[in-house]
């Protein structure tokens, strides 16, 4: 359990090599644009990292031409030390080929990724939850408001800067009359 400073840990991934991976590359990466930044696998699970503005088109293409008709999950990860601090992860499943892949993208706090609600109905609630927990605004979402937290709650709990005990003190005091935390 040494605590010495180490370089930021990196996932030991392997290259994702199969037909779909090649197809993604040949469809979206041209001589002057790279929309698919990385294609990797970890523990046998394939995932591709796209440029921020390619996230929606890539998923739309996967749905329309590759039968990925099931949006299993949509979630985000916060990396506060990174300039591209948000990571958006969509997990897609195809009934036809019985496979699951992940599409990820990184973007900064100011960006507004395009909503997937026009592709999958399931994205509606999932994006609301991501907004609620991380404060990520989705462009084109029909009803982007908090879903789990109270409407007048301040802040977004799953951001790394929020500690588990340091939440919206004012709200807790106003509505519950107690000090927040343990």
């Amino acid at each position: 359990m040494s605590q010495d400073a180490k370089p930021a840990p990196v996932m030991a991934t392997e290259a994702w090599e199969d037909g779909l991976s090649d197809l993604l590359h040949s469809t979206f990466n041209t001589a002057d644009t790279t929309a698919i930044l990385k294609r990797e696998t970890f523990r046998g699970q394939a995932f591709a990292t796209t440029a921020a503005d390619a996230f929606h088109p890539v998923i739309a293409w996967l749905r329309d031409t590759q039968n990925f008709d099931y949006l299993v999950d949509l979630t985000a990860v916060d990396h506060p030390s990174d300039p591209l601090c948000f990571e958006l992860v969509a997990i897609l499943y195809s009934f036809a080929s019985n496979r699951r892949i992940r599409i990820k993208t990184f973007f900064d706090a100011e960006s507004k990724p395009a909503s997937l609600t026009n592709l999958y109905e399931a994205a509606n609630w999932l994006e609301r939850e991501v907004f609620d927990m991380f404060g990520i605004q989705f462009e084109g979402h029909p009803n982007l408001k908090r879903i789990l937290m109270p409407d007048d709650w301040q802040g977004h709990p799953l951001l790394k800067e929020r500690s588990i005990v340091d939440m919206d003190q004012d709200w807790v005091q106003k509505h519950l009359g107690i000090e927040s935390g343990q």
């Binding site: 840990p9 990196v10 996932m11 030991a12 970890f42 523990r43 299993v72 992860v89 997990i91 992940r102």
Partner: peptide, 19 residues
């Protein structure tokens, strides 16, 4: 080690996944 997985099972109510 650093990494990420998504594993899901068929729970009584449907697909329960952990990412």
């Amino acid at each position: 080690a650093p990494g990420e997985v998504y594993v899901s099972i068929e729970a009584p109510k449907g697909e329960l996944g952990y990412y």
